[in-house]
Design a protein around this nucleic acid. Structure first.
Lengths: 228, 228
DNA sequence: CGACCCGTTTGATTCAGGTCAACGGCCACA
DNA sequence: TGTGGCCGTTGACCTGAATCAAACGGGTCG
C-alpha cells in the first residue's frame, strides 16, 4: 500500500554531494542565500536526501517540485510538504534530516552548505534572521497542515487546492506536479477518496478538471467556505 | 460540540500585559532568556492571548500547563500543543499570534517582550541562535504532531502517552494536567474514543489508570510498538 | 495499428471512529 | 446527609472514509 514506483537514487543525474563544486565564500554581511551554492539536477523520483542522513546542505528549488516524507513501519507514507520553485527545504536544527526528500518531477535544486550558512549567520545578523524566518515559515506551514488533517475529506481537498492556487503564479488554473497518491499521502487520505472528492467538487461546479494534473478553480469562494 | 467550560479572561489574576514591570535590559552577549521578564499568574482556563492578537510577548511556563489552540468555523477545536514547566510558547515570526493560548490549570508564566528579544538578537548571536533553536524545536513538535494525526486512534493515544512520559521527570507514572476533551482535541479524536482507547490499553495491560488524570505506563515497549 | 502499462476513476462492501444517549463517580455546597 | 454539576465511562447505532475489485484512458513501444 502507498508504494512508490521507483524511489532509488538516480546515480546518473545526481553526483554525490561531496563532489559538488566548492561553494563560493560570501563574507559580506547582508548577503542573501540566493547567490551561493551549486545547482544540481534530479530526475523524477530521485532521492535528494534520506531520513536520518546527516544534514549537510540546505536546498532551494530552482525548477520543478520536491516532496518530503516519512514512512511508518507498516508502509504508510506521510508527505510533510511540497516544495515548488523558490522554496527552501532541508533546513534542520539537528544535524540529521528528519524527513526524506524526493524529486516529484525532473528538477533543479540549489545546494547550500549548512556549515557555511551557520558560520555566515554568526557574522551577519541578516543571514541569521533569514535562517530564523525560513524556519518560522516552515513552522507555519506545518501548523496549517495540522489544521488540514483534522478536517473532512472535502475540506482537506478544498484546502489543498486553495493552498496550491495561492502558491501558483497564474491564478485561475492550478497545474499539479504531483500524483493523486502524493496528494492522498499529504492529506492523510487514500487515492480513491481524493479522486472521488475531486469528481464531487467538479459535479458541484466548484472546480473543473480538464486533465488529471490540471484543475480550474471555478468557484474559489465555495472552496473557501468548505475550507472552514 | 467541543465546548470549553469557561474561557473568558480572568481579569483578577491577570493584569494587562502593558502593566508588566519594565524588562531589564541585558546587553551582554551570551545572555539567556531565563533571567529577564515578569512572572504572571493565570487561573485555570484563563486566556493568555488570543488568535490574531499582536504578538507582543513570548512566554515561558514557570509552573502549571498551557494549551494553544484554534477553533474552526463550526466549533471544532484543534489543540496545537501542550506546554509544561520550562517550555517556551508564543514565538511567532509574524506580528500576530496564529493560535490562542489558555492556562490548563492555575499556572505561572514568564512574559518576555518580543521587541526586546529581537533587539537583543541583533546584538548577540547567542540570543539569535536561541530564538532560532526554539522555533526549530517548535517545528519538530509540529511535525511529530502531523505524524500522530495520520494514525489510528490506538496509535495516537499511545503516541500521546509516550510523548507525555518523555516530557515528565518521573518516568513510571504520567500525571496529565489536561482533560479528556483536551487530549481528544489534540489528537483529532472524540472524548469517547479517547476514553474507550484508554480502557482498551488498560485491558491489554499496556497501561494502568489509577485515577483519570494519572496513568502508569505498565508496558512502554507495547506502546512503542503501537506507535509505529 | 495494436498491446501493454500506468495512473486514475468508479462501484460495492466493510469497518473504525463518530454520534447520541445513559450512567457512574467525585466533589462542592447546602 | 442529600443534591447538583462535572467529568469520565460505557453502550447502541450510524456514517464517512478505507478497502477490495474492476474498468477506463492516455501514453509508449514493438
Amino acid at each position: 500500500m502507498h508504494l512508490q514506483a521507483t524511489t532509488q537514487r538516480n546515480t546518473f543525474t545526481q553526483p554525490a554531494p561531496r563532489a559538488a563544486r566548492p561553494v563560493p565564500q560570501a563574507p559580506v554581511a547582508g548577503e542573501s542565500i540566493e547567490m551561493m551554492g551549486a545547482v544540481m539536477p534530479f530526475a523524477r523520483n530521485a532521492e535528494i536526501y534520506g531520513e536520518n542522513e546527516p544534514a549537510e546542505y540546505l536546498y532551494k528549488v530552482v525548477s520543478g517540485a520536491v516532496r518530503t516524507y516519512k514512512v511508518l513501519n507498516d508502509g504508510r507514507r506521510q508527505i510533510g510538504a511540497f516544495y515548488l520553485t523558490g522554496d527552501v527545504f532541508g533546513l534542520e536544527i539537528g544535524d540529521v534530516h528528519s524527513f526524506s526528500a524526493e524529486a516529484i518531477a525532473d528538477c533543479k535544486v540549489m545546494l547550500i552548505k549548512r556549515s557555511t550558512m551557520v558560520a555566515l549567520a554568526a557574522r551577519s545578523h541578516d543571514v541569521a534572521h533569514q535562517l530564523w524566518t525560513m524556519t518560522a515559515t516552515e513552522l507555519q506551514r506545518a501548523q496549517a497542515h495540522i489544521m488540514l488533517l483534522i478536517k473532512t475529506a472535502q475540506e482537506r481537498v478544498a484546502g489543498f487546492l486553495l493552498e496550491m492556487a495561492a502558491r501558483s503564479p497564474g491564478c485561475a488554473a492550478v497545474e499539479l506536479p504531483m500524483s493523486r497518491q502524493d496528494i492522498a499521502d499529504y492529506l492523510g487520505l487514500t487515492i480513491e477518496t481524493v479522486s472521488r472528492t475531486l469528481t464531487q467538487l467538479e459535479n458541484s461546479a466548484a472546480i473543473a478538471v480538464p486533465s488529471s494534473r490540471r484543475i480550474v478553480l471555478r468557484n474559489p469562494a465555495a472552496l473557501s467556505r468548505l475550507n472552514a
